[in-house]
Amino acid sequence: MGWEFNIGARLHRRLLDQELNVKASRKYEPDELIASHKLLKRLLDTPDAFLTHLRQMAGELILSFTYGIDVLPSDDPYITLAEEALHTLVSAAIPGKYLVDTFPILKHIPIWFPGAGFKRQAREWRKLARSMLELPFLETKRQMESGIARSSFTADRLNGLKDTNSAYQEDHIKSTAATMYLGGADTTVSTLGTFILAMLANPEAQKKAQAEIDGVTAGETLPTFADRDSLPYVSAIVKEVLRWKNVTPFGAPRLLTVEDEYRGYRLPARSLIIGSTWSILHDPIIYPDPHTFKPERFLLNGKLNPAIRDPEAAFGFGRRKCPGRHMATSSTWITIASVLATFDINKAVDADTGRVIEPTYAYFQGVVNMPLPFKCSIKPRSTQAVTLVKGAAASSQ
Rank of each mutant, 00 (worst) to 15 (best):
G2N: 09
G2R: 10
E4T: 14
I7E: 15
A9D: 15
H12K: 12
D17N: 15
E19M: 04
Y28I: 02
E32T: 13
A35T: 08
S36K: 00
K38T: 05
K38P: 02
L39Q: 03
P47G: 07
T52Q: 08
A58I: 02
T66M: 08
Y67H: 05
G68H: 05
D70R: 13
D75M: 07
Y78D: 05
V90D: 11
A92H: 10
P95L: 11
K97H: 03
D101M: 09
I109W: 09
A116K: 11
A129S: 15
S131C: 06
L133C: 04
E134Q: 15
T140N: 04
I148D: 11
I148K: 06
I148C: 10
R150K: 14
S152K: 07
D156I: 01
R157E: 13
L158K: 09
N165V: 01
S166F: 09
A178L: 12
Y181H: 14
A185L: 13
T188K: 00
V189L: 08
G193N: 02
L197R: 03
A198F: 01
M199C: 05
K207L: 11
A209N: 06
T224Q: 06
T224C: 08
T224K: 06
A226D: 15
R228C: 02
P232C: 08
V234E: 01
A236E: 02
K239R: 09
V241M: 01
N246W: 05
V247G: 05
V247A: 10
P249D: 04
G251Q: 08
A252L: 15
P253G: 09
L267Q: 10
I274T: 10
G275L: 15
T277H: 04
H282T: 06
D289K: 12
L300Y: 11
K303C: 05
N305W: 05
F317Q: 08
F317E: 05
F317H: 12
R320W: 08
K321Q: 14
H326R: 01
A328D: 00
S331Y: 00
T335K: 00
K347V: 06
V349P: 11
T353Q: 04
P359H: 03
Y363S: 04
P371R: 09
K375C: 10
I378R: 07
L388Q: 07
V389R: 03
A393G: 00
A393K: 01
